[in-house]
Amino acid sequence: MENNILLFTILGLTFVTALSQVFMLLLNNMKKHPGIDEMSDDELEEYQQKSREVLHDASKKANKILTNAELKGIEYIARQKLDIEKLVSDFNQQTRGLEGKLIEQFKISLEKTEKTYADYINVLQENLRQEEMKNQRLFQEKSSKMIDNAQQVMSAFIMDINNKMKIQIDEELKVIRNELETYKKHRFEVINKNIVDILEKTLEETLGKKLSLTEHSEIIFQSLEQAKQDHNLT
């Protein structure tokens, strides 16, 4: 773009230069031949014819220069274009080559990075595993210690509780034994008092249906005779 502008600027200057030369030439001619008003019509016509010829030559030369300039310009542009295309293809080629190199380098560096990363991960894993084992060992030691402590405390506590409970149970047993003795005593007293009723009820259940009428009759007569002997009839 800038080249195009430069080219057209050069062409323009060339045209202006040509025109100015033409005008200079004309002026020189006019200076050589001083006054138009003093000349005759034939001379004027001759000069006009010459000036026309000069102008025509000038314009022809100017056109020629312009054409040449245009052609040169076109040639320059074409050359430029070719150069640019070549440049572009070179650039693309260079770029592709560079791209390939870069990709390879990138691949290499990626592999390296991956390898490094894998190594780093392995190292990390190994560290973690060792740390874990260490923690596990520490945890086991601490928990064993804690369990031992707890066992000792529990044993002491249980023994203490056992002793206390033993004492308490002994006391309770003593109280219970006393109560049992009292109860037994009381029970025997109650039984002794009510033994007759108890026996009566027991015998009612067991003998009531077992004695025959004859046996009943015998018992009645025995009791009456006994009462008679004891003078206890009335």
Partner: peptide, 14 residues
């Protein structure tokens, strides 16, 4: 009332 039943004899032997 005169009791000559089992109750009477058991009571005598209480």
């Amino acid at each position: 009332y005169k009791d000559l039943s089992l109750h009477y004899f058991l009571s005598k032997k209480q």
